[in-house]
Design a protein around this nucleic acid. Structure first.
Lengths: 118, 118
DNA sequence: GCGATAGATTGATGTTTGTCGATGCGGCAG
DNA sequence: CTGCCGCATCGACAAACATCAATCTATCGC
């Protein structure tokens, strides 16, 4: 392939820079990109954002699943599925207390994604 | 549906809080959730993160498409498609100078997404 | 043990998404 | 005008995804 960088002459560089010549210097490697993309994919659904918001609104103690199904307006299996996605992305963590499952925000993962947008 | 909140007694509340009773108070409404989800969806692909990183690395002048196709290792139509997704999400903006198309980061959109993760 | 309940898993289905080859369009050089 | 080059669009296809009904597992109260 022929890049515009290779075509530019010294005169063109002086007059008007044609193309960025320092290509290929990404801020992170491919593995990091895949990892970050996985995190953002978990945030790419309105239902999951709603769930995160509800869980976060319940403070550090977290929220019980039975109180999440109603507000998001989806079936219980669908909510369970979305919570699993959030769990596997490391955005929330769950523990069972007796019959109920409690979810709470995993702050560090959220902050890592936040930092990557700088 | 019966929520655990409705089942808890005063004694249970005192001993161990069972469920978060303040349900339904999300930090943003459904419309915002859809909008944010759209933004994160644009960030949910490694190729697009790579493109953003490359464009950002070229400074405020932005990057020429011909210098992006090589580094990301995808066909030109595929890169064009991803750039369109980023454009429609407001994460980048494009302008054509002669034969070439130049893309640059749209900082404000990125910052809005960043703030929403707080 | 038994029935009821909370939540996860499975299976099926319609939709969305990533990818590429082929094609279209506009600008530049000769 | 003509041919080439950079980029966008189109058409097709496979993979991934969101959703729900049905089912399964584990826990609680009786």
């Amino acid at each position: 392939m022929t890049t515009a960088s290779q075509l530019q002459t010294a005169a063109q560089i002086a007059a008007a820079p044609v193309c960025c010549s320092t290509v290929g210097s990404a801020a992170f490697d491919d593995g990091d990109a895949v990892e970050l993309a996985r995190g953002f994919a978990a945030l790419s659904d309105p239902v999951r954002l709603h769930l995160l918001s509800l869980i976060a609104a319940c403070g550090p103690d977290g929220a019980c699943v039975c109180d999440l199904v109603g507000p998001v307006g989806r079936s219980q299996p669908t909510v369970s599925h979305h919570l699993k996605v959030l769990r596997e992305a490391g955005l929330v963590s769950a523990d069972k207390r007796g019959t109920w499952a409690w979810y709470r925000i995993e702050r560090s993962t959220l902050e890592r994604l936040q930092r990557s947008l700088g």
